[in-house]
């Protein structure tokens, strides 16, 4: 595989990979570095890309590992059993945009839940694909996704009433 073929294959995934990194890391320069590292790694693994029939899933697995490493290095990994800090966000929806509220709540989710929301709702992966990427069982994925969606959207419903 030459460079042109590589970019033809990976180019369409760039926005998915970068969006994933940006939302997971919440830091643009760090997300750009992560994307660069992941692309260089994928270039080195280009022989495996040729034989892989789900390139998006494969590339996202590499990006997920990179992001989790960076999150751990920065000491920003949030365990599931930590106090639910998201509850402390002020519900002042009259003055703050709802999407901004969602972003704030997303950043306070436990890292695993954030990862699952990212893969399911932003990237549109199926449970089976997320299972392959995260190595979590479908049941665990469902439970965590349900918790995360409730944490993110229920305050909005309360506000709309």
């Amino acid at each position: 595989m030459d460079q042109d073929q590589f970019w033809l294959m990976i180019g369409p995934l760039n926005s998915n990979l970068f969006g994933f990194a940006l939302r997971m890391l919440n830091d643009r320069p760090l997300a750009e570095d992560a994307l660069q590292d992941v692309l260089e790694k994928l270039w080195k693994m280009r022989k495996r890309l040729d034989s892989n029939n789900n390139i998006k899933s494969f590339a996202m697995t590499v990006m997920k590992n990179k992001c989790i490493d960076l999150i751990r290095k920065k000491g920003r990994y949030i365990e599931s059993n930590e106090p639910e800090a998201y509850m402390t966000i002020e519900s002042n929806y009259e003055h703050i945009d709802m999407i901004e509220q969602l972003k704030k709540r997303m950043n306070l989710l436990p890292t695993n839940q954030k990862l699952i929301v990212e893969l399911k709702d932003f990237q549109g992966f199926s449970y089976e694909e997320i299972e392959e990427i995260t190595q979590m069982s479908v049941n665990t994925l469902r439970v965590n996704l349900s918790r995360a969606r409730k944490k993110l959207t229920e305050p909005l419903r309360d506000e709309w009433r």
Partner: peptide, 18 residues
């Protein structure tokens, strides 16, 4: 109330990719 959520998760255009 889910309108904002779907708008947020479906927005792939607003991010400027390097």
């Amino acid at each position: 109330h889910l309108s904002a959520y779907f708008q947020w998760t479906g927005d792939t255009e607003s991010i400027e990719v390097p």
